[in-house]
Design a protein around this nucleic acid. Structure first.
Lengths: 189, 189
DNA sequence: CTAAAATCTTGACAATTGTCAAGAGCCAAG
DNA sequence: CTTGGCTCTTGACAATTGTCAAGATTTTAG
């Protein structure tokens, strides 16, 4: 089941890295139902997940118990709670499969070993980290500089997949607005 | 003028890395006045800056010309527009010295060379990247899950330096609220 | 396929936050 | 040390967004 990840890595490097088989051996296939939690607040995140199929939501709960979504991950996305994973400390976030998912996961120890032993794996991690940081910076900028309507428009333009594939409730939790507000803003487009 | 950076790196590694002198040679000292822009929207970011003294604001302008601050950097902070720098493409952000600053800067070419030639430098970069990403993730979570008052409280608890050292106007632009709202919320604490 | 559950939409109203204006106060550059 | 410019505060009001409730619609699990 690691063929998709294999293909993904080959395309990223535009060639087959020498130690690819060694890397792939560390990944374990998991098929999970819609609604399954991969991580709960307070738990220590032991894995990095690669999404083969499905969609994953990373969120926290506010004081009223409402979900505030940090990010969604689709096919070929890499998911973890970076801080909790890196330091093996309890997480503040929830990671949930919001569609039936097929995943590959790599354990903390294996991840660390690969980073140390396989330079290409470390390079891949660095690239993903840079891209993730960049995405998150943009997200901060949209949250501080745009009002609700502008954020909806921004989402449609830059992340149409989220708009078309996910429920309004999830989209609203990603935009930081209530579902009712989203319904009303849609009619203003 | 690279003694402070030297000390910073030694403390980070808990020993003196072999190639430290080679790395330090690539940094250039700059002393700049309050208000100086290190980067303007549309410009290509050619440097990574290390703050020896002073404070730097990274912000964008919204459609009404109001500043929305992504981040502040104080002593021992690393600043750049990561996406524009990495890809040498026009930036969407402004980088401004909001206090008289003393800086060390490293040019894009030198930065790339150091990442390639000095593994410790690359490791340092990765660490800073991880920490920055993590900080930004938390920032997204506060922006989506907390209201204005809660964000002020959060800022006081987690980043007291911002609250005490910077003007209300700047703090408001960081929290994504108007200066008037900040004034009013302060009286509710 | 069907029943139960969750989501979406709409209305009425409340709460939060923004805008504009004006005076007081403070700070920084010379 | 002084002065001009910027910031802070406050009030009045407007705009945006949230909350609650209820019915219609859609989706999901068995």
């Amino acid at each position: 089941m690691t063929e998709i990840l294999e293909q993904y890595i080959i395309e990223r490097f535009r060639k087959r890295p020498e130690n690819l088989d060694k890397v792939l051996l560390n990944f374990e296939f998991k098929k999970v139902k819609r609604g399954t939690h991969l991580l709960t607040q307070g738990e220590v995140c032991k894995y990095v997940y690669f999404v083969l199929k499905g969609c994953i939501q990373v969120y926290i709960l506010d004081k009223n118990g409402n979900e505030a979504t940090r990010s969604f991950y689709f096919e070929n996305g890499w998911v973890t709670d970076i801080f909790g994973f890196k330091n093996q400390r309890p997480s503040t976030e929830f990671i949930k499969c919001i569609e039936p998912c097929e995943l590959l996961r790599i354990h903390f120890h294996a991840f660390q070993a690969m980073c140390k032993e396989v330079p290409q794996f470390d390079a891949l991690y660095k690239e993903i980290l840079e891209a993730s940081y960049n995405t998150t910076v943009y997200r901060v900028n949209t949250l501080t500089s745009l009002n609700a309507l502008e954020r909806v428009q921004w989402l449609m333009e830059t992340k149409p997949l989220i708009m078309t594939r996910l429920s309004s409730k999830l989209i609203a939790s990603y935009l930081g607005i209530s579902p009712e507000t989203l319904t009303r803003l849609k009619s203003k487009l």
